[in-house]
Amino acid sequence: MSRILPLLRGVYGIWLREILRATRDRGQMIGGVSRPLVWLLIMGVGLNPYFRGEVFGEVRYVVPYTYLQFLFPAVIVLNIMYTSIQFAVSVIWDREFGFLREVLVSPMPRPLILLGKVLGGSTAATLHGAIVLILARFADVTLTPDQVVMALGAMFALSFGLTCFGVLLASRIRSFEGFGVFSNTIILPLYFTSSSIFPLDPALSRTQMAATYPEWLVFMVQINPITYAVDLLRGILINFNQFPPAYGPAVIAAMAIGFFLLALVDFGRSK
């Protein structure tokens, strides 16, 4: 115990630092609010007339929910993706400005340093995802305490995987400028091909069947791991799954474990 306790303190310290930095960073907080506002308020409400019913059976967009409800879980995932992957900036920052060395000369083992950092990053990302839940009222998503707890769990697991992914990115990118471009070319395509803003399942109605997507797009959606994360949150929050419900947890768990191990290898290599 006397050996473990100091290590736990160290993990806590690293975690705490990430949280303090993330919550004090006004820019990051504003980003965390503006994304859900843009996506739910502007886009969701703006596109609502195109998805609402005019004549029974003539809806182009057949899911058993409103567009806002359909979009809501995806916006949570978007917020988590941004925060997690931009966490990599904090890793690059530490490296550029020498703070990383302060930690590396400490008696903390490398894997625990990484764990503390990743836990901090994923807590911040989960927080950003949880902020979106405040808008549940606006999107007419009713939440029970059970649902909130399950959603937070899923969000944290997703954040963990994506944060590790961010660390992997950071170890391959040398400059901040390069990262900005890179993050946008990763986050937005992943988001758009995750069936976030349109449903994929053509079997819900005849109308939808007539409007199936080209195979290449369906393929991109299906190989995108974010698709299953969005699907899991939809299952929890609005009880709607496009894929077998077991896929979501499996993909998220695989991401969390896989990316953490890869990040561990990378981090051990870094000086």
Binding site: G32, G44, I134, R137
Partner: peptide, 17 residues
Amino acid sequence: NIAAVSLLLVAVSFLPP
């Protein structure tokens, strides 16, 4: 910061969609 952001979102959630 968190409180400010949350308040904003709560306020916004009362906007009619």
